Amino acid sequence: MKKIKIGAVGLGRLGYQHAENIAFKIPGAELVALCDKDEVKLNKTADAWGIPNRYTDYEDMITNQALDAVVISSPSSLHTTQIAQALDAGLHVFSEKPLGTNLEECKIAEEAVERHPELVFMLGFMRRYDPSYAYAREKIRNGDIGNVVLFRGYSQDPESCIEGAIAYAGHSGGQFIDMAVHDIDLARWMVDSEPITIHAIGGCYAHQEFGAFKDGDNVAALMQMENDAMVFLFAGRTAPHGYNVETEIIGTKATLRIASVPQKNMVEILDHHGVRQECSQDFLERFEQAYLAEINEFIKCIHDHRKPEVTVYDGTKTTEIAYQCKKAFETNELIRM
């Protein structure tokens, strides 16, 4: 089978992980180019992995005739422009979330995808590829829990990572767009419905710096969906125990809970603190297998000449909902969709 030759842009935490996975863990792919503004990091990484082509300019990278596809892990505000540029250059595209930080940006991506139906575009909603979430969705689709009453999603980053979150706050788009977008996507995917009303609250409980961007360090939203299901989302930056993503879906016949107690593994530690379990400390650790699975799916879609389940329109819809959550948070008013 021909290997798909990929250029990766962005060597932040997740971008580095994607690039490393492509270079060493995805059998059907070959990493042939890297792009990052930090030339020192770029050359150090490329030298260590033996990557021949390296760029500090994305537009230069996508002119490389050896490339079949790009993986985009750049800052959120660059996503849609880079998606359009790559598709117009004849390249398949995998982009990290969010699709865009506003609807105008999302439309740029939509139009580019529509211009190139022959190419594969995939958005990085990796939780769909986590085995536990995939299993839960099948239970819902099979009717095992009856009608969905409530979807509850918690996403919390550890306090130990707060400096990076504050530094990124100015161009993140806000908590709902940057962080809660995963739970918004899961809610739409699992409940199989769209919101009709949104109310959001929150504040700067530990770090006032977020207030400068009309954001909070902990925020929440309550939605009513078209099928009457309720959705509650909580996104926080100040968890003292580690990275914590938990989900609950309450149905009329049963309840599903995913990672209701966040834990690194199945080990229990018995020491002078008592009996305890350790927590994952970041998203890379918790969703390691999901990140591999989503890139594998991207490569398979290219080989099989088919489109992935998650589409550009899913990206637009989650951005729209996240933006309305942000608006509800800022105005403290009920938003009707």
Rank of each mutant, 00 (worst) to 15 (best):
I26D: 11
G28L: 12
I62P: 09
T63S: 10
D47Y: 02
N64Q: 08
D88K: 08
N64C: 07
V70F: 05
V40S: 09
T81L: 10
I51W: 01
F24V: 09
E30K: 13
L67F: 11
Q85P: 03
A46S: 11
D38Y: 04
C35W: 01
N43R: 08
G90S: 00
N53V: 05
T56V: 14
Q65F: 07
T63R: 15
E39S: 10
Q85L: 15
Y55N: 05
T45W: 03
L67D: 12
W49R: 03
P27E: 12
N53W: 01
E30Y: 02
K37E: 09
N53E: 11
R54W: 05
L42Q: 07
Q82E: 14
L42F: 05
V40H: 04
E39N: 11
D57C: 12
Q85D: 14
C35M: 02
I62L: 11
D36C: 04
N64R: 04
N64G: 00
D57T: 14
A69D: 07
I26P: 02
A69Y: 06
L31N: 06
H79W: 06
T45P: 04
D88W: 03
S73P: 01
W49N: 01
F24Q: 14
D38Q: 04
L34M: 00
L31Y: 04
F24E: 14
H79R: 10
G28Q: 14
D47S: 10
T63M: 10
F24Y: 12
N53L: 05
D36Y: 06
T63P: 00
K37N: 12
A69W: 06
I22V: 08
K44R: 10
T56P: 12
L34R: 04
E30D: 10
I83G: 00
K41F: 00
C35V: 02
I72L: 13
D38C: 03
A33S: 11
M61Q: 11
N64V: 03
T81P: 01
T56H: 13
A86M: 02
E39A: 09
A33W: 03
L67Y: 12
L78H: 12
I26G: 06
G28W: 08
N53P: 00
L78K: 13
